[in-house]
Write a protein that binds this DNA or RNA. Structure first.
Lengths: 343, 343
DNA sequence: CTGTTAGCGCCTTCAT
DNA sequence: ATGAAGGCGCTAACAG
């Protein structure tokens, strides 16, 4: 394996000069610069990351934590692939690498993160599946490792974040359902304390209030964020004496399961039960009737994540204010939202 | 940030002893050992990975390369989540970390890999989406970085690999279709040179040969491995003068698209066109009629990947033979494979 | 059983 | 514009 010393010996110059040349430091003779770059390329020299990190304290790497045991991920959600692709592209242009740090299902996300922090293997980190009270954020805030959360938390010390507009989507979903005459509007929320569930519920409640519809607690359902969860919910609703006429879902991965359960119960989505799902996604394109849902530009989200992470790094010394952004989503409509049956 | 020196000073012992204690080296007084571990835990000491790697030449990290731009991944395939979860769990038990290295769509997989190799940031690497002729493998073989490929290549120097039994599945699929009376059996193959396409085609041809059915080149279709690809294929087949009566798919992600296109063309899956898909997957559970397909234990595959990777590392000095394994899959049947219509 | 020390590869300061 | 040297944190070889 070739190191900077061998490269320097090969060129009969000192390693200091080689280092300066490779890192675009000023004060290197143009001719020397060219010789060094040429030799490095020919000999296939790439700086050893460990040596460089040890010296500079930086890794030029951004970490993205994914919980591989999370059911929403195992439900065939291609969300992260597209987001990561765009984020990676952006970071690469700026000279950074992106690595995905998978936290497995038998591991504790907080402990996992504490190891990641301590090992100093990334310069900044993005966390996902943010909880309303999220111990990871308290830990990150204490650690001084720059971090960005996808989803905003209420944990004190919360830094920069990007969130989808769960509240706005829920509110608009109620509004669209009301416009079609619905008054008994149910909602499917996560069965855990992930932050988006609270925001979606807030929007749902605001939507009801604006329409003058009283809250019926029996219309608020908790379920795993997966097709299995949706399947269970569909059957629960089908078995009710007084069924809702519309159902709002905080995640699109539940949708195929709801459809399947309704069909088994001989109920027709969009007729016997209207459905408004969350995000349009290629898998849902092929459901019939087409689910009413909202559009999100995943690539733009990925690029934005990259931008904000690098902002964090450059603001390190400047210690800029943490920033938060809510990504708006566009209502697309769909056949699964129909008029109230018999009205 | 606490380092080994501060930890040693805190305990009034030398860093050598601290290092030995933390790494379970023999020759440390039990009492000292305990004191060190206790203090490390209390002060939250975790060894700096860069320092350790620089000294030992090892990172205790396994890299898993994923091409995020790959359409099969963006089609909501939860394949990797489950496999990675199991693999990560296995590696964690053995003291290794797993990192996912995303290669973005605008990057060249070969160049990406050469950078990964050169940076020496992982001890071994797993590559996926293996091509029949795969330049990454030639490069890895030259680099001496231990590697495992998911999918076997014909590139010389191919090391250890695990592959799904694409050939066996295709052959069995033909057999099952023939058993139902089908003779005009089409096949949907990838439109690129990914290795699995060749193996699936081999099995298809063998199956036809065994049944004494002549090969009809017009029954061999190339399409992107995605629901969009399946959608296009469904419409192509629907428009044919002489349609096949059965269609075999080398990937299950095509299935929803095929179903949707057939439905639009007023053809019924399992009646007008029988379908045998590849792998059962939660998303397909909710398609109607249920797709005939095969079962694969993703967790077992992940664990096996972990095992083989660590075998590579321990065989480093011993220089053991490269090993290859084919993972068998079980036929599950399904309603989408029906008798030939009108027969 | 423990302390001391060299050196992994790199960047940066200081001297020339 | 270049060379020389120190040290980032760690482990391992050697000395006691």
């Amino acid at each position: 394996m070739i190191n900077i010393r061998r490269l320097a010996d090969h060129l009969n110059i000192s390693i200091g000069t080689v280092s300066r040349a490779l890192n675009n430091r000023p004060g290197v003779h143009p001719e020397t610069l060219e010789r060094v770059l040429k030799a490095a390329s020919e000999l296939g020299y790439v700086p050893n990351q460990s040596g460089r990190s040890l010296r500079t304290g930086a890794t030029n790497t951004i970490g993205f934590v994914v919980e591989t045991g999370h059911p929403a991920n195992q439900s065939g959600d291609q969300f992260f692939y597209v987001v990561l692709d765009a984020m990676n592209l952006y970071l690469a242009e700026k000279g950074y690498d992106l690595v995905i740090l998978p936290c497995h299902s038998a591991d504790d996300p907080v402990e996992f993160l504490s190891r990641v922090i301590a090992r100093r293997t990334v310069d900044a980190i993005v966390i996902t599946a943010t909880r309303r009270i999220d111990h990871r954020i308290a830990m990150l805030a204490k650690s001084k490792l720059p971090f960005l959360s996808l989803g905003r938390s209420e944990t004190p010390g919360n830094g920069s974040w990007i969130d989808l507009d769960f509240e706005g989507v829920a509110r608009r979903s109620v509004e669209e359902a009301v416009r079609k005459g619905h008054r008994r509007i149910a909602v499917g929320l996560p069965d855990n304390d992930v932050a988006l569930g609270f925001h979606y519920k807030d929007g749902y409640l605001k939507g009801l209030a604006e329409a003058g519809i009283p809250v019926d607690e029996s219309m608020i359902f908790r379920l795993p964020t997966s097709e299995q969860g949706g399947y269970g919910l569909g059957h629960r609703i089908a078995a009710l004496q007084e069924r809702p006429t519309a159902l709002l879902l905080c995640s699109e991965v539940m949708t195929p399961g709801v459809y399947a359960a309704l069909t088994e119960a001989e109920l027709q989505p969009g007729v016997d039960l209207s459905i408004v799902a969350f995000r349009q996604n290629p898998l849902m394109r092929y459901l019939s009737p087409s689910p009413a849902c909202f559009q999100l530009d995943l690539s733009a989200l990925g690029t934005r994540l990259g931008t904000l992470v690098l902002d964090l790094l450059s603001a390190q010394e400047g210690a800029a204010e943490p920033r938060g952004e809510i990504v708006p989503m566009t209502y697309l409509g769909g056949e699964s939202l129909g008029p109230v049956k018999g009205s």
